[in-house]
Every structure is written in structure tokens, then in C-alpha cells.
Design a binder for these strands. Structure first.
Lengths: 218, 218
DNA sequence: CCAGCATTAGGTAAATTTACCCAATTTCAT
DNA sequence: ATGAAATTGGGTAAATTTACCTAATGCTGG
């Protein structure tokens, strides 16, 4: 078994470097490089291609989802092991559908990372409880999973309405919003009422839920 | 300079173990032990006292704030270096007032951790930009900082509270919820108020966001 | 057994949201 | 240029949420 090259993409320096140490200690790893976001990772790959990437999802500049898409499209031989903080089934399902080769939580054991790296190189896939669960449940309502989890534009609300909705979601009152936007309190009330009417919800709770479900928030 | 003992408290296994590697590589460190939450940490300390603790804040069972309080009260000679994900000035100010000896972000450089460890041992304090900023601003409105920051991810809600939160998220009013659960409207009000207090949010919007972020919804 | 927490319920009042109206201006596309 | 949509502002009132209290009961871990 020849030695492999592993790249790590994560914005948290300490996590990244600690991870680097761990990975370097794996017996079959010959080289480790680090990137603090998706863009840096792509730059690294341009110069030299790794065998496996340990990919964080939440990163500035270019997040892990976008980076995964680009790497998979350009370099089909590179394996991607996603290391995520959250076990949202929607994310897991989306990433695995996208073609990621493994999905681990950041509180996994180092041994599991090593196991996952070996598995994706050998079998193109590392199956753990998380992924099995997510795929099983995800298959049931695929529609939801096909929506890209993060960015999605909500068609029915106007720009102004979206702006106000976001402020509502920051727990501001109507008065605070009207001050912030230099509008009459009445105007903000009307905007919100129109949103509630458009979206067919009963109260602010419904608005916040819409903001989440439409990807406006998060 | 004699060799020192360092304990690490963090719930993310990978971070903790990676951090362990890093710390073990510091020249003046003789021993490293790990705990996955505040309670485990206290158990470790009961057996053998460390010189320095690297303390994460967000942890299940017992979070870093509580653990810091207890350690400082019982073992005044142990130095605490907080490693946090977020640079919330409220958190920084609160922790430093509490008596923590250093506050670093998780995306600090390993060298800074080493520097901080050495500084707290030598000077009882490690001052960086973050802390200076937070203390300066925090002094201006101390009231706010005295509120103990609450973490959303800890399972702080009781079963009943969660049940009510879910109904709130279905856009039911307090009256409808009290009918559905055969409770006094007042009781439901109180449950919600306690939740808002616990979670440190201003209104129902904050509750709904918590429901999403904590995975209660979705 | 006791302390602490969860759950229940009440009072009082202020603040805020929600539900209806109407209407003037600007913006934008047909 | 003309009509539709977006944005702005207003009035009135009811409904609901939020704030700040107290307090009884029951359950549980040390």
C-alpha cells in the first residue's frame, strides 16, 4: 500500500493543526497540507493533487459544500471526507448525494477518521450509522433533500420584505426595526402583515419558520 | 523550569485529541489528560491536580462556565485557559471577570496556546487583543455582562418545556396550547417565560430559532 | 431527610403584535 | 403612458405577548 496525501480544509486553526498532527500520525499518510477555506483548498489542489480531503462545511469565503462540488467536478479521483459539527440529516443526505465519500462528526474518534480514509480509498465509500440513517430517511422525502440546504432564494417576498424579515429574525421589535430603517412603525407593521398574508402564516413564528425553511436564515 | 501538567476539557473528540497532540509537543509539558465535559474534568482533578486547564465552553452535562467556577473556587492554584469558538464580548468579559486566566479563540495558532500557557503560569494572566477589547467595552455596560451567558446547545430545557416549545413553533397561541394540554393559560405563560430566561432570548422569535438550531425542529 | 428542581397556578400591568381599514408616492415593465 | 406592484404612512382596537411577582405541590438525588 503506497503512501497517501491528505489535505485538510477547516477555518478553525487549532482544529486544523490538531487534525494535522493526528493525520500525520497515521502510518500510511505521507503528506498533509492545510487550507483555511474552500478557495485556499482549490489553490493547493491546483499545484498538487491529494488523495483525500478532510472537509469542514462551515467556512468563510467558500464553504465546504461549494468546495466539494468543485473538487468533485474537476478531480473525480480525489476522495472527500466531510467533517461536520452538526448531524443534520438534510446536510448529510445532500452531501452524500453530491458525491462526498464519507461523512463524520467532529466528535468522532481519530480511529474512525483513519478508518474512513482507508475505506474511501479502497471502496470509494465509508458507511457509518449517520450516513445510513440519513440516506434511509432522506430517500423517503427526496424533495426536501434536493433543495440545497444553505442558499436558496425565496421568490415571493420583495427585497424590502426580506430585509425586514431578517431583522425580525434577529429578535428586534417593530419599533427597533423602524428606527433602524428610518421608517414609520406603521410601515413596518404593514410590511409584516403583508408577509404573513402572502405566506399564509398566523404570526411571527410562521415568519421565522419561513425564513429558515427558505434558506433566508442560517 | 519544571515540567507542567495540562488537562483538556472539550466535548469534540477530534478537537480534544488533536489538541492533546499539540500540547504534548510543547517542550515543558509533562502530562496531558482529557475530559469530554466539565463533570469529567472535575473527576480527573479530584485524583490529580493539573497546572493548567484548556477549557472549552460549550459542553454537555456541565459546561465550561460552570466548570470554571467550580475549579476556581476549589483549586485557586490551577490556571484556566478558555478556548472558545465564539468571540462574543459578553462571554469573554464574563469569563475573565469570573477569574479565568486567558481567553483564546479556537482558531488561534498553536504557538499562541503555548504562549498563553506560559504566561498564565508566570504572570497569572495572558493578555491578548480579544481580552483587552472585551474588558474595555465590557466596563462600559457592566450590567449586560453580568448576565451569565447561556448556551443554546446544552440540553437545558425540560421535557415539558420542549413540548410547549414545539407547540409554539406550530404557530399556536398560548391559549390554544393551554387548551390542548389542559393547563392554565398562566402555566404556559410561565413555561415560556422560563424558557426565554434560560435561553437568553428576547421574544418568541428567539425561541423558534433555538428550536431550529438545537435540532428540536426540522 | 432535605434541597433543589419541575410543574402547576395565580395577579397585575405594560408592551407588542395582530387585524382590519385607507391612501399617496415611487418604480417598473408592458 | 399607463397600470400593476412596491413602498410608504395613517387610524382604531382587540388580542397576545412580555415582565415581574408569589406560591403550592410533587419528585428526585445526595
Amino acid at each position: 500500500m503506497s503512501k497517501i496525501k491528505v489535505y485538510i480544509a477547516d477555518d478553525q486553526t487549532l482544529f486544523r493543526k490538531g487534525m494535522g498532527r493526528l493525520v500525520r500520525s497515521f502510518p500510511n499518510v505521507s503528506e498533509v497540507k492545510e487550507a483555511s477555506n474552500g478557495k485556499e483548498l482549490l489553490d493547493l489542489i491546483k499545484e498538487e493533487k491529494p488523495d483525500v480531503i478532510l472537509m469542514d462545511l462551515e467556512m468563510p469565503v467558500m464553504d465546504g459544500i461549494e468546495a466539494t462540488e468543485k473538487v468533485l467536478a474537476k478531480y473525480p479521483n480525489i476522495k472527500i471526507v466531510v467533517l461536520s459539527m452538526h448531524d443534520s440529516q438534510q446536510h448529510i443526505f445532500y452531501l452524500m448525494e453530491l458525491g462526498a465519500h464519507a461523512f463524520l462528526l467532529k466528535n468522532a474518534e481519530p480511529e474512525e477518521v483513519q478508518e474512513a480514509i482507508n475505506a474511501v480509498l479502497k471502496n470509494d465509500f465509508y458507511q457509518n450509522q449517520l450516513v445510513v440513517e440519513a440516506l434511509r430517511k432522506g430517500a423517503m422525502d427526496k424533495k426536501k433533500a434536493e433543495m440545497r440546504p444553505v442558499f436558496q432564494n425565496s421568490a415571493s417576498l420583495t427585497d424590502r420584505e426580506k430585509e425586514i424579515l431578517l431583522l425580525i429574525c434577529r429578535e428586534l421589535t417593530m419599533k427597533e426595526i423602524s428606527d433602524k430603517l428610518s421608517l414609520s412603525e406603521k410601515t413596518v407593521h404593514n410590511h409584516r402583515a403583508r408577509m404573513m398574508d402572502k405566506l399564509g402564516v398566523r404570526n411571527t413564528v410562521g415568519l421565522v419558520k419561513y425564513a429558515y425553511d427558505s434558506g433566508l436564515l442560517e
